[in-house]
Structures are given as C-alpha cells and as structure tokens.
C-alpha cells in the first residue's frame, strides 16, 4: 500500500500542513481555510479563470484543482505578487495606471496568468497576450487596458 502523501504544501513561500480532504478544491482551501481571499471564484467550472494560481511554476485554475494534487508543491497566489507593505509589482502598477481594473473580480486571475506569461515570454506580442488570456474572462473592461498594461510591463523590463 503506497503512502498517502502528507498534506504539506508551500503557499506563498510558507510551508503549511493542512487537514482537509484531498478533493477539496485548492481555491476553497485558499479562501476558506487560509483566508487568502484574493483568489476569486466565479464559476467552479474552470472556465472564468478568476481563481488562477501558480503551482510549481505553472498556472492552474484552482476551482477544479484538488488540493491533494498540490501536496509537496509550491503555490503562489495574488497575495504573493507584492509585499503587503511594499510597492505593487510592475504589472500591478501598470494595471493601476492604465485603468485595467474595473470591478476587479477577474483581476487576481488575470495577474497570475500574465505574471506567468511574462516569466515564460518576457517580450510577448499583443497576440500572445490575447492568447494567454483565452481562459480568463473579464466582463467589464473589454480587455484592452489589460493588454496595454501587460505590454507596458514588458516594455519597461526590456
């Protein structure tokens, strides 16, 4: 009989031990067990992308990602992008300046998807940004200012 993995995972750099069933969605664990409500849930269908977080360097939609699959892994949420008392990340600052936030519920997921994109592809084309957002729905902004903020972030890092 194989070992059941210990329910230990690293969230935003902190190692935590959890007492939750393995098929609990990661998004629910983050929000309801750990109080990390920056990760939003909009559909529980894996289709709106508001709950996007980064697990071991890759984005996942946390509403349909069982926490048991994250055991032993590193999870990053929107709360990791800036120190609580520190400045916003460059991407966050560009979101603010370009007017890329409206109601803001999609924003954390957008930020995680785009932060990951800029790590994989530091100088994306506009089409690459649009493609990267194919799983992140925003009902408010029409995406334009989100795309502008991303390209401005890449430009500033050049």
């Amino acid at each position: 009989m194989p070992d059941t993995k210990p329910a230990t995972l690293t969230i935003n750099g902190r190692e935590l031990e959890l007492d939750v069933p393995p098929f609990y969605p990661l998004a629910v664990v983050l929000r309801e067990e750990l109080g990390l409500t920056g990760t939003k849930t909009g559909c529980f269908e894996g289709r709106c992308g508001a709950c996007t977080v980064i697990v071991d360097g890759e984005t996942v939609v946390a509403c349909i990602y069982p926490v048991g699959l994250a055991y032993g892994k590193s999870v990053l949420t929107v709360e990791s992008l800036a120190e609580p008392t520190g400045p916003l990340s460059s991407l966050q600052q560009n979101f603010l300046e370009k007017g890329a936030v409206q109601c803001g519920v999609c924003t954390p997921g957008m930020l995680m998807t785009l932060t990951n994109l800029l790590e994989r592809t530091p100088q994306p084309s506009e089409d690459e940004v649009r493609d990267a957002l194919s799983g992140n729905l925003c009902r408010c902004t029409g995406y334009r200012k989100i795309i502008e903020a991303t390209l401005a972030t890449a430009e500033a890092a050049r």
């Binding site: 409500t37 920056g38 609580p84 007017g99 936030v101 924003t107």
Partner: peptide, 21 residues
C-alpha cells in the same frame, strides 16, 4: 483628469473584500 481608481490597489493586492469574501 484621468486619475486612477481609489479602490484599484486593494483590488490588485487581493485585499478588497467582495460580497463573496
């Protein structure tokens, strides 16, 4: 003037408290 939103920073940091939160 195109001043930024007052609530943008909290929304960007994930600290804004929505109805679902």
């Amino acid at each position: 003037e195109s001043v930024p939103r007052q609530d943008a920073e909290a929304k960007l940091r994930g600290t804004a408290v929505y109805g679902i939160d």
